[in-house]
Design a protein around this nucleic acid. Structure first.
Length: 269
DNA sequence: ATGGTAGACGCTCTA
């Protein structure tokens, strides 16, 4: 089984690239972020044609997450467990943003895995309500992940965490040091998840760092390889023990009309 | 110095 995460930055603009990636790499589970579409605009039939079932949590203009499953590997599709973490947005009185979707997926041999797709708040600018919202959201996430942990189900929490965990996860520390993605509070909240026992799959198989998952559209970041690692795959011990390989589909970042993120995946035995 | 690009929207916001 292969679980992937991909911040696609707009499902309407990205649909040709996204379908191409699904057809070429065939992830068993694909967690998408920043679909930037309302529920009724989600192109489910496009994915059905490729043999994928989907659940999604949309929002107008911004955010939005989805979980796709390969019908050949997961015959019954994703079974939704929870959407949202029960936290309002950064503006006073704002309702919940679409950033969290949790499902069970069961393979043909009857093994069930919990998959959580997250789009963690960016947190810029700081200080201010957006950064406070990011930190509060991370606390809510930690609480939910602890609940899942207590259920003792094999689980992967994947997505755009908007956190650069270590200095060697960024092309230049100085370039990002004032950014919300690299603040001590952001890093501490991420580190607390690892301290709780979750395994950072990409880090585990690339302990020296230097792996990027995002390159800004601006200032020729892709051409200069000015990237950093913010898309993560966190695993419970049972899944960590079965981890076989991880990868970043870098080549897809270089294509025409690409997302500013590359897909990240992990495969399990 | 507050750039540069992209997406959704329809004016600016978000990243």
């Amino acid at each position: 089984m292969k679980i992937a995460t991909y911040n696609i930055n707009g499902i309407k603009a990205r649909l040709p690239r996204l379908k191409e990636w699904l057809a070429e790499t065939r992830p068993s589970v694909a967690c998408l972020q920043e679909i930037k579409s309302q529920d009724e605009g989600f192109p489910a039939s496009e994915f059905e044609e490729l043999g994928y079932s989907a659940i999604w949590h949309g929002q107008k203009s911004f955010n939005g997450v989805a979980i796709l499953t390969d019908n050949n590997v997961i015959p019954d599709g994703p079974m939704e467990i929870q959407r949202g973490l029960g936290i309002g947005g950064p503006k006073e009185g704002e309702g919940e943003q679409s950033r969290y979707l949790e499902a069970d997926v069961t393979t043909a041999n009857g093994e069930t895995t919990r998959v959580v797709c997250i789009y963690l708040p960016n947190g810029n600018p700081l200080p201010g309500p957006k950064f406070d919202y990011k930190i509060a959201w991370m606390a809510k996430l930690r609480t939910r992940m602890a609940q899942i942990w207590a259920e003792e189900v094999p689980c992967a929490v994947v997505g755009d965490y908007n956190v650069i965990p270590e200095d060697d996860d960024v092309w230049a520390v100085k370039a990002m040091q004032d950014d919300a993605l690299m603040q001590p509070q952001s890093r501490a909240a991420y580190a607390s998840l690892l301290a709780d026992g979750w395994t950072d799959a990409v880090r585990t198989l690339n302990p020296r760092g230097g792996v990027w998952t995002y390159w800004d559209y601006q200032a020729g970041a892709w051409q200069r390889d000015h990237g950093f690692r913010i898309d993560h795959i966190l695993l419970t011990p049972e899944l960590a023990d079965r981890l076989q390989a991880v990868g970043v589909d870098r080549e897809h970042r270089g294509r025409e009309k690409a997302s500013d993120h590359a897909p990240v995946w992990a495969s399990f035995g």
